[in-house]
């Protein structure tokens, strides 16, 4: 009996490029794989959109008018103020996605394939976080459109607004590395999802995202002002021109220089959590 395809040609193992080029290339190959999966399971992306859209609508119509921002209880003032907060909260949800995805991968056979290939070390993780970044960007676009529909506007020009979105995405990317570490540390995707979400609630609520921090008790206010999350929210608000006229800018350094603070925080998180995750990945025995 002969097989249909005739003899299989021999293919010597190509030489590894090694270094940064291979690292980038391998990460993109893995990212592409994750994006294909995303397109084949669109439910995940769609459910990921519903929650922030509900937040936009609920917060701006239910709370708008009862929360004073810069001395004004005008619902529209609150709506303008709120959007950067919801955008920032949305990007941090990438944590749970990345965590669940990686936990899932680690317990499926495919990880053995990856780990037996001469791939760049961090590529499985970087590929995942890059794919999540694309998903986050898509979510932000849809969310911005919904925000415009309910009356949100930018006032500082398109370039600054884009810079605001870039900072938001960078924060999301940073958080997906925290998610990666969580995903590598737990046994199931379910645990990674809940473990990736619970700590986000205190983090996003003890911040300036939904209410100005100046009404909080001193301890909480200090936490809120130094919260990496607040820095990005404040920076985005500035860049979108969404800070109401009478809004007092707190004296804490990150609130005075929110763009820098946001950049520094995000880069620090990426550096630290990427290193920890890659180390964990290499020692993990799936």
């Amino acid at each position: 009996m002969t097989a249909a395809g005739g003899t299989l040609s021999r293919r010597p193992v190509p030489r590894a490029r090694g270094g940064a080029v291979q690292s980038v290339r391998d990460s993109l190959v893995v990212a592409q794989r994750n994006l294909i999966r995303m397109m084949r399971i669109p439910e995940v992306v769609i459910f990921g959109l519903i929650q922030p859209i509900m937040f936009v609508v609920l917060f701006s119509y239910v709370f708008g008018g009862s929360i004073a921002v810069g001395g004004s209880t005008d619902p529209d003032t609150y709506r303008q103020f709120l959007m950067a907060g919801i955008f920032a909260q949305t990007v941090t949800f990438a944590t749970a996605g990345a965590g669940a995805g990686i936990a899932d991968d680690m317990h499926k056979g495919l990880i053995d394939r990856f780990r037996s290939l001469p791939m760049a070390r961090g590529a499985v993780l970087t590929g995942r976080t890059l794919a999540d970044l694309v998903q986050t960007a898509l979510t932000l676009v849809v969310l911005a459109i919904v925000a415009v529909i309910v009356g949100w506007r930018i006032h500082e020009g398109l370039l600054k607004a884009l810079a605001g979105f870039a900072l938001l995405l960078l924060l999301g990317y940073a958080f997906s590395w925290i998610g990666a570490l969580i995903g590598l540390s737990v046994r199931t995707p379910e645990a990674a999802t809940s473990g990736g979400l619970i700590w986000l609630f205190p983090l996003t609520f003890i911040s300036n995202a939904f209410v100005p921090a100046d009404n909080m008790p001193t301890v909480l206010r200090t936490i809120a002002e130094w919260n990496p999350f607040s820095a990005t929210v404040q920076a985005a608000r500035e860049l979108f021109g969404n800070l109401p006229a009478g809004y007092p800018v707190p004296s804490a350094w990150p609130m005075q220089h929110p763009v820098w603070a946001s950049l520094i925080w995000s880069l620090l998180i990426i550096t630290a959590f990427r290193a920890l995750s890659v180390r964990k990945y290499r020692s993990a025995t799936a």
Binding site: P14, A16, V29, R33, M119
Partner: peptide, 9 residues
Amino acid sequence: SMVGRLYQM
């Protein structure tokens, strides 16, 4: 083809 590309093809 993913595996091939991870072998640097």
